[in-house]
């Protein structure tokens, strides 16, 4: 092993991480004291005791739990659907030979770069036509598949499933779908979990499309937060209490699976 780096490396990294954490800490610090620390010459560095009362006020102002449940439903269904369809297609691209597979895969890669967000106007017209506007399916259905997901699962399954295993299963008379279920799915599990996690977080953060497709009576958490800011502009203790409340679940998720998230990002970089 090479030798340990010096203080300079640690110092710079710690400074970078402090800068990364500070805005989030600030969004907790303000509601834990109150708006008056915004005018302090030197604001306090330790939290005060008002966070819970500000948080309570958030719950009284916006349909926080309703919005949270909506976000979980939307992000959960989108993540599940992306994982299922990507694993199926990824398996076919990685392990099965069929006419046109190369052309189709190039198509997948190209669609990764297509800014589908620019199609929101016809999408909105369609949603109004179907009467879906304002309902959760309006934000779930347009996100059911992901080109990146297919790409990601293909790259992973190409190495993770030995072709001999599939051949052996075939010659034993195993049908394709059983091979998929008993050979590919178990092997795909780590990559599928990662894809699910990324998709969940991406969908959780989505703002533009939910803003168009949903309304304030049935919001996702992002819309509810925006509503909080729009209605109570000056009261930062309230608004920041809202952002902190909404960040806590994701932060806990991050503490639990952050290690895998880091590994996933780095893995994706090398494969991609």
């Amino acid at each position: 092993m090479t030798r340990r780096p010096g203080f300079l490396v640690y110092g710079l990294l710690i400074a970078f991480i402090l800068g990364s954490v500070f805005p989030l800490y600030w969004s907790f610090l303000v509601p834990s004291h109150g708006n008056d620390i915004l005018t302090d010459k030197v604001p306090p560095l330790l939290p005060g005791g008002n966070f819970l009362s500000n948080a309570q006020q958030v719950l009284d102002t916006i349909p926080f739990w309703h919005a949270m449940v909506n976000s979980v439903i939307v992000s959960g269904s989108v993540a599940l659907s992306v994982v299922v369809f990507s694993t199926l297609a990824g398996f076919a691209f990685a392990k099965l030979r069929f006419k046109g597979s190369n052309v189709l895969f190039v198509l997948v890669v190209l669609t990764m770069a297509v800014p589908t967000q620019l199609g929101i106007i016809p999408l909105y017209m369609a949603m109004s036509e179907f009467g879906w506007a304002g309902h959760l399916q309006a934000v779930i259905v347009p996100n059911l598949v992901s080109a990146f997901g297919v790409f990601w699962m293909r790259q992973y399954l190409a190495d993770a499933v030995p072709s001999e295993l599939i051949e052996a299963a075939r010659s034993d008379g195993c049908s394709m779908i059983r091979i998929f279920w008993h050979v590919a799915v178990p092997a795909a599990r780590p990559a599928a979990a990662m894809l699910g996690l990324f998709t969940f977080m991406q969908s959780w953060n989505d703002f533009l499309w939910p803003l168009i497709a949903l309304d304030q009576n049935n919001p996702t958490i992002q819309l509810a937060l925006e509503q909080l800011q729009a209605g109570y502009y000056v009261n930062y203790a309230l608004v920041l209490a809202g952002t902190t409340l909404a960040t806590i679940p994701i932060f806990l998720l991050f503490v639990a699976v952050g290690r895998q998230l880091v590994a996933g990002i780095m893995q994706g970089a090398v494969k991609g």
């Binding site: 992002q222 800011q229 932060f251 998230l261």
Partner: peptide, 19 residues
Amino acid sequence: FRMGVLVPYVASLVAVGII
């Protein structure tokens, strides 16, 4: 350290905008 540099990634865009 690797997790540390990734912390901002957990904040939602709307939260970031407000903060």
